[in-house]
Design a protein around this nucleic acid. Structure first.
Lengths: 173, 173
DNA sequence: CGATATTTTCAGAATTTCCTGAAAAATCGG
DNA sequence: CCGATTTTTCAGGAAATTCTGAAAATATCG
C-alpha cells in the first residue's frame, strides 16, 4: 500500500515544482509560489522547518516568503495548544484564492496605472495644439478603460462564489 | 505658443517614464513598456533611431523590444514610400490593446497552469488514501476554476467593444 | 532571571534578467 | 556586383532580484 503514498508524493512534488516555475511568469518569486503550492496541498499545517526541509531552502528564505504569503492572506498562522512554534496553513477554497489574488493585483497593477493616467490626463487638459489634444484624448480613453476594469474587478471580487459561477455560466452558454 | 509644446513634452515624458516603471510590476520589462507608451502617444510613426534617441537606449535594446512589441501585436511596422527604413506605430484603441494583452496573458499564465493542473489531477485520480483523495480534489477544483477563467477570457476578448461595455455597465449598475 | 527555543533581520553571495555596443547579416539602389 | 544603409544577433557587462547563513532579537518556560 506504499506505492500509493509514493505516487502521491511524486504528484505533489511535481505540482510544487511546476507551480513554482509558473510563479515566475506571474510576477511573484519562485519560492513564494512553491510554498503556496506546498501548503495548498498539505494534509496538515506545517512549520517553517518542515517547509525548509521539504523545499530545501534556507531559513531566511522560508521565513520571508511565509510572512509574505500571510500578508497576502493566502496562508494563515495556526497556533497549536502546548506547542511553541508557529504552524502555517493555506486557504484552500479556490474562490477565496482568486479574490485575494485579484485584490492584490488590482492594488499593484491597476491602481498605480490609474493614478498615472489621471495625472497625465489632467496635466494635458488645457493644451490646445492638435498633438496636445490627441495626447489628452488618449490618456482620457485609457483612464476611462482602466477605471472600468478596476470597478469590474471590485464587483466580481465581492460576489459570493455561487453568484459568480451563475454569471459566468450564463456568459459561457 | 511654445509653452504649450513644452507642457505636452513634459506630460508625455512623465507618462513614458512612469508607464515604464509600471511595466516592471507587470512582468514585462521597463524598456518594452516605455516604447509602448512612447508609440501610443506619438503623433506619427517613429523609426528605431528616434526611439533610441528619445529614450536614450542602445540600438540592440530598442530593436529587440520593438520586435517583441510587434510579436505581441501592440505595434505595427509601417513602410513609407521611397523610404528604406522601418517606421513603427502603436495600436491606439484601448479595447484592442486590452484584448491583445488579455490573449497574451492567457497564453503565458493561464494555459501553462491549466496544463499542470490537468496532469496532476490525472496522476492522482486513482490514489485511494485519504490524503491522495484530498490532493486530487484540490487539483480538480483548481483545474475547474482555471478552466472557467480561461473560457471567460476568450469569451470577453472576442466580444465587440460595444457589447463588452454594455455588459460591464449592466454589471456595475 | 537564565536557559532554550523560535522568529526576525540583513549583509553579502548567487542567480537571473536586462542592456550595451559592436560585429555580422540582410537589403537595396545604382 | 558594389557600396551604403538598415536590421539583426549576441558576448559580455550592468543592474535587479532572490537566497543563504548567521547573528540579533524576541518569546517562553522553569
Amino acid at each position: 500500500m506504499n506505492a500509493e503514498a509514493e505516487k502521491l508524493k511524486q504528484a505533489r512534488d511535481e505540482f510544487v515544482s511546476q507551480w513554482g516555475a509558473l510563479g515566475t511568469q506571474w510576477g511573484i518569486n519562485r519560492t513564494m509560489a512553491q510554498i503556496h503550492a506546498l501548503l495548498m496541498t498539505a494534509p496538515q499545517a506545517m512549520t517553517t522547518d518542515e517547509v525548509m526541509e521539504d523545499l530545501e531552502i534556507s531559513r531566511g528564505n522560508a521565513h520571508t516568503n511565509l510572512k509574505e504569503l500571510v500578508a497576502w492572506g493566502l496562508i494563515r498562522v495556526v497556533v497549536k495548544k502546548g506547542e511553541r512554534r508557529e504552524y502555517f496553513e493555506a486557504e484552500k477554497d479556490v474562490w477565496s484564492i482568486f479574490t485575494i489574488v485579484a485584490r492584490e493585483r488590482k492594488r499593484r497593477e491597476i491602481e498605480p496605472a490609474l493614478a498615472i493616467l489621471n495625472k497625465c490626463a489632467d496635466e494635458s487638459r488645457e493644451i490646445e495644439t492638435p498633438d496636445g489634444k490627441a495626447f489628452h484624448e488618449q490618456m482620457r480613453a485609457l483612464e476611462e478603460f482602466v477605471g472600468f476594469a478596476s470597478k469590474m474587478s471590485d464587483r466580481i471580487s465581492s460576489m459570493k462564489h455561487g453568484f459568480a459561477v451563475q454569471l459566468a455560466t450564463k456568459l459561457l452558454s
